[in-house]
Design a protein around this nucleic acid. Structure first.
Lengths: 145, 145
DNA sequence: CCCTTTCCTGCAATTTCGGTTGGAATGCTG
DNA sequence: CAGCATTCCAACCGAAATTGCAGGAAAGGG
């Protein structure tokens, strides 16, 4: 149960974009330099973010990417779902999953669906704006202990 | 971000064992028959559960596995951690991870650690006993919405 | 002694991960 | 218009993990 590097890099990429505001474009080259991620790999990561409508692009010299809306209107869930597709812990729960033949007597599907809900609730409750203001020191957490 | 089949099968295996109580032993052969999982694969799954002290075994004819303690004293988290080792969403948060060089200026580590806590809290809050009494129909959830 | 079962090791096919490579299209700028 | 920076597109690729299966050895009950 791990999130991929694409998930992690996507968050870091979006934080960089958010730091520039939605007007200024930022090239992958500069993100590559500041974050230490190869430009070519970033291309793969930004593509689904673009298709999901979270960022827009301009080509050519002085081109780059920018947020399509303020960072306060984008959640971590938006970003992760753009990369992962469905954010489900097991294939059974995917939106286009075939119906499991032992579904009716399954004792664990409820557990997994509960986990999905807990994860959804968490990632949708944290905005890109909040991410930007987080430092490593102050560990986060809405209101858990 | 998916949990492996071993994680899922481990839960189902443990539910089967719990249904027999901690006295009666149950062979992998019978679990294989009722759950439709190959006996050989189950062997791989039960081994870490045994090493983690969640089940004990007896060899030979009439042998099998049984819980080492009541199902009310075993959580889903216990089972998943036995299979997965650390239950962390990204390698950075593993207990024996090397320190990330960009840790101090990282804006996302807090997010991931929060996710880890949310997951931990959920899986540790559901006991094997609760799993046994779950049906597919009644979706779970302690008190979320 | 035979049968059942756990235990242990090794192998193998497939998929996923984590990228790299190569180039085409587009648009600014001198 | 030439050149350069950038996004876009599509393959490819090695390594690792996933998802098992096979073949036994060891132990215990009947």
């Amino acid at each position: 149960m791990k999130f991929s590097t694409k998930d992690r890099y996507a968050l870091r990429l979006m934080v960089e974009l958010a730091n520039r505001g939605p007007e200024e474009t930022l090239s992958l080259k500069s993100v590559s330099d500041s974050q230490g991620i190869s430009q070519k790999y970033l291309e793969q990561i930004v593509t689904p973010l673009s298709r999901a409508g979270l960022v827009s692009s301009s080509r050519g010299s002085q081109g780059g990417y920018r947020l399509t809306r303020p960072a306060s209107g984008i959640t971590a869930g938006d970003i992760l779902r753009a990369i992962e597709g469905d954010l489900v812990p097991i294939p059974c729960l995917a939106s286009q999953a075939e119906v499991c033949p032992r579904r009716s007597q399954c004792h664990t599907i409820g557990f997994w669906d509960g986990l999905r809900q807990v994860i959804d609730q968490y990632v949708d409750g944290i905005t890109l704006e909040q991410l930007c203001s987080m430092k490593a020191e102050d560990l986060p957490l809405p209101d858990l202990e």
